[in-house]
């Protein structure tokens, strides 16, 4: 009897500790996510809703602005995430050498961009990529280009700017994860491989990379989720997704639909569920691929 009384009080205590967080998550996460699913089947402007069935989903397929935002977001994802993660891996691998001179200086420098706020770095980048700005000046001084590049006025170069900016901001962040994981790999594996005459690139490719698989998966998933929600940079660096929607992302379009134009919350909610579905599918694929390779 005493035992069951103790167990009951343990149960009660367990709930009391987790309840505040669960209630808040219920109100501010679970309820809204269900609400926006319901909303995505509603049509109307402002706060006047009526049930529209699949109207919004049909509208998606014929909405050129949505298709533009979707393809921009996927382009950013497909190009930016691999470039960033490969760079982060290379830097981490170089910095994992304890004999490297200036190691902690390099590490601090490459990590430094993570300390900035997205807004602050975005406005700074916008000024760097001005038509007669410092980027063009440096590239012309180095004779990499002959004429200034219209960074923010050209649809292609505007995408390049956004990709460079995100890569600048997040490479060091991912590098830190790789470095921490590399330091947990047993040094003797490398020593043995070295004695057997395995070259450095092969040690990296056949020992380091497989050992880091869980971290690589983790960083891929969080980078994917982050890039699918890209908002701050295209809103600020390329001035609300310009030029002519070349850097418009799904999040930016949702914001425009809900808060910049006459609000159509139902349709905006449908677009937001496109992100939910994409995040779900891509995360699932990444987990399956990682599990497959392990087997």
């Amino acid at each position: 009897m005493a035992q069951s009384g103790y167990e009951r009080s343990q149960q009660v205590n367990g709930w009391l500790f987790v309840l505040p967080a669960l209630i808040l998550l219920g109100i501010f996460m679970i309820y809204p996510i269900i609400w926006s699913l319901w909303m995505s089947f509603q049509v109307g402007r402002g706060m006047n809703f009526s049930f529209g069935g699949f109207t919004n989903i049909m509208r998606l397929t014929q909405d050129p602005v949505f298709l533009r935002a979707l393809s921009n977001t996927l382009i950013f994802l497909a190009i930016q995430v691999p470039i960033m993660l490969i760079l982060a891996l290379l830097f981490a691998n170089a910095l994992n050498d304890s004999k490297l001179w200036g190691r902690s200086w390099f590490r601090t420098a490459i990590f430094l961009p993570c300390v900035t706020s997205l807004v602050a770095y975005s406005v700074v980048f916008r000024s760097m990529f001005a038509q007669d700005g410092i980027m063009n000046e440096m590239l012309m001084a180095l004779q990499i280009i002959d004429n200034p590049i219209p960074w923010l006025a050209d649809p292609f170069w505007a995408k390049v700017v956004i990709i460079s900016a995100i890569t600048w901001r997040w490479t060091g962040y991912n590098m830190i994860f790789y470095l921490a994981a590399m330091q947990n790999i047993d040094r003797s594996i490398y020593e043995a491989a070295k004695i057997d005459g395995v070259p450095a690139w092969a040690r990296f490719w056949y020992i380091t990379v497989p050992m880091l698989k869980p971290v690589i998966l983790f960083t891929t998933v969080i980078s994917t989720i982050g890039t699918l929600q890209l908002f701050d940079e295209p809103n600020l660096i390329t001035n609300q997704g310009g030029p002519s929607d070349a850097t418009l992302t799904l999040s930016l379009y949702i914001y425009n639909l809900s808060f910049r134009f006459m609000p159509s919350f139902g349709y905006a909610a449908t677009v937001s569920y496109v992100i939910v579905v994409l995040v779900g599918i891509l995360t699932l694929i990444q987990f399956l691929v990682a599990r497959d390779r392990r087997a």
């Binding site: 996460m29 989720i225 949702i254 914001y255 905006a268 937001s272 569920y273 995040v279």
Partner: peptide, 18 residues
């Protein structure tokens, strides 16, 4: 909760605003 970690904020902001 692990699954909820990947809920994008974009899908919450309209209901939260209302």
């Amino acid at each position: 909760l692990l699954l909820m970690l990947s809920i994008p904020f974009a899908a919450l902001m309209i209901p939260l605003f209302i």
